[in-house]
Design a protein around this nucleic acid. Structure first.
Lengths: 212, 212
DNA sequence: ACGTTGCGATAATCATGATTATCGTATGGA
DNA sequence: TCCATACGATAATCATGATTATCGCAACGT
């Protein structure tokens, strides 16, 4: 995305237009993919002209890269808020909550669309795969790992062992349902997600108390 | 794909050309996707002219549909052969073997490419998602279910319980590695796949002997 | 109110690629 | 050998869509 000098007489106007463009581009790219989305369609959706698109972005590639990059870094605002309510509970309940949240997030429509687009355009933009994995999945792994490190229950574990247990936790959560969702078929129900989260939580606690 | 009357003077020639076309189209579509593959490129790869392509297929859509449909029905020849060697062993060893085979198949480059293409073109061809799931994943579930039904160890289980246990087995095999592979990142190592298969086998046997 | 500057509309350019028409040639099979 | 017919080469058509040039207008901030 092109950037202007901050002391621009019309900075506010341009910021408004830019926000509309980025939002419309995100919707279009996630819905139709890179090839399927057209610059003209994005301009219409954003309520601007094509020329304005090109005044804000170098071209389609530039716009796409900017959109995907921001989409890979979701703002975890609401979740942090909800986490504060849960953080007082037992380790088992916290893990169950995190487990359900992770499944809901990864199987959500926005994440699914993003994964599809990224997988399609990985050849054109080689860094997308790594970026998407870190933003959509690795961030959860890191968050759980950091949380565990502060927990007295895991004080006796080595960092490597903690890493292994954390990784196993997420591995247990997503089975074939992930493929089903990506293929447009119904995934796990809410109850199934809760059951799986409960199972993963129990197994993690078992692993913590009885280290291999 | 267009079909000719079987009593065609040049049936053999056409069959040869058609095979070359289908193979080239499969390579091109799985490598470059629907939009990325060009009819001209497919013709060159197949060693035929563009016109011959259109004499064999109604158009790009028709060719694509034929390619994907056949790709979703892999011939399980070699695996059946290898299975005969394993079928004499213990249930645990059989399950471990099946578990490793399933992971290798699902994480293989051909299956990965196919899944990517299917996910991208699902909107254009709505039946692709279901077709791919049944061909690439559901077939394994059905095969294991059928195998279990003939096993004396599961004679006491209800069909529904057998279904549940079989489904859980595959759920345990594929974790986040499936996403990693689809995103072009390194998946599970051979040793990790064996460990996971061993774990899934043990848990299935435990579930069989101690029904919920 | 004013000057700067982004914006909109339009059209043109350019490239890619699917699809079709035509016609002479080459080849398979009896 | 001979006939039917698939094949190859070429060019034309057609559509889509990215990208750029131009120019008058409208809007923002002081």
């Amino acid at each position: 995305m092109k950037d202007w000098s901050a002391d621009n007489p019309k900075a506010k106007l341009m910021a408004r237009k830019r926000a509309a463009i980025v939002k419309a581009a995100k919707d279009a790219f996630l819905r139709d993919g890179f090839a399927g989305a057209s610059m003209e369609g994005i301009a219409q959706e954003a309520g601007v002209s094509i020329m304005t698109l090109y005044r804000h972005a170098e071209g389609k590639d530039d716009l796409f890269a900017a959109v995907i990059e921001t989409a890979c870094h979701p703002e975890d605002q609401e979740e942090r808020v909800r986490l504060d309510d849960v953080l007082q509970q037992s380790l088992r309940d916290i893990l169950r909550f995190v487990g359900v949240m992770f499944q809901e997030r990864l199987n959500g429509s926005e994440t699914t669309s993003l994964l599809r687009v990224v997988m399609t355009e990985m050849r054109r933009f080689p860094q997308l795969g790594d970026m998407a994995y870190r933003g959509l999945i690795g961030s959860h792994e890191q968050a759980l790992l950091g949380f565990l490190a502060d927990r007295p229950e895991t004080a006796a574990l080595s960092p490597a062992r903690r890493q292994q247990i954390s990784s196993e936790f997420f591995n247990r959560l997503i089975g074939l349902d992930g493929y089903r969702v990506l293929l447009g078929l119904p995934g796990a129900s809410e109850i199934q997600m809760q059951q799986r989260a409960a199972l993963a939580a129990d197994e993690m606690i078992w692993a913590i108390t009885a280290p291999a």
